[in-house]
Design a binder for these strands. Sequence first.
DNA 1: ACGCGTAACGAGAATCGTTTTCATTCTCGG
DNA 2: CCGAGAATGAAAACGATTCTCGTTACGCGT
Lengths: 145, 145
Amino acid sequence: MAEADVNEEVAALLRRADQRYTTGRRRVVDVLEHSGGPITITQILAADESLSQSSVYRNLTILEEVGAVTRIVTGDDFTRYELAEHLTEHHHHLICSDCGEVTDFSLDDSTESMLDSAFHQAAKANGFTATAHRLDLFGTCGNCA
Amino acid sequence: MAEADVNEEVAALLRRADQRYTTGRRRVVDVLEHSGGPITITQILAADESLSQSSVYRNLTILEEVGAVTRIVTGDDFTRYELAEHLTEHHHHLICSDCGEVTDFSLDDSTESMLDSAFHQAAKANGFTATAHRLDLFGTCGNCA
DNA sequence: ACGCGTAACGAGAATCGTTTTCATTCTCGG
DNA sequence: CCGAGAATGAAAACGATTCTCGTTACGCGT
């Protein structure tokens, strides 16, 4: 999705929730858009020095509530954030157990659709209403190998 | 796996790492074995009042290091633990976004093997060595619906 | 059996990522 | 242009987890 479209879409999501698309929020979205994968608060603050920690935390929470951003928990001590999937592409994560770095990857369409139906069936069998799934690979990245 | 076998296997894992299978550790394993899914430290402490918080944290860390226990991060504020897969069965998780409860589910073998090969391929394409994967469904459980 | 050295324990203190507070600064409708 | 409600930022509070340290229990050699 083009940058302008992302901004427009995020603005719409915020407006729908009676929230403003302030400068700080736009800056956070910009940082997320230009980093090729989920990043930590620390990385966001480093990428744009004009941001203050508490506002970034608060705004990420709001952006997540309106569906513009997704929170990623990897197992190391830092929560990571990325733009929501409908603003990017459907993808999954390769998580380096060594350095904690997270990078995106995709599966081909046939695998994905097969997964979807398997999930749907499994959820149904457990009286569960599934709204999302998480699919991550753990291992060692090229750098750490 | 039968309870006696689990204890034996855990004992072996600990011995291999020059660790002792103490009463406290066995009690933690027992609690994990009798709860049908990943549980929090709080739940473990509630399930066996003889356990002390600091020791449970420490022992879970050790049990994870020797490969007897797996740490599960769901997104709420609590880390959960379960017995490692080779002590149970290969399975995935249904995570209730509402109450945080986690329950196990399985996919059929053909789906699993297809997933495995897709993962292998995706990891390879990214210069990544995959050692494990995580596959969770988020949604609403029967109780919360 | 008896000690000894070391591992494990338990209660509380410390840590640190995250959340909250609160006074100040923006922003938008009227 | 004003005023009310949002959003901000710095600093304090919070809380799950980890660490500290004195005590207890285990395994092993004698």
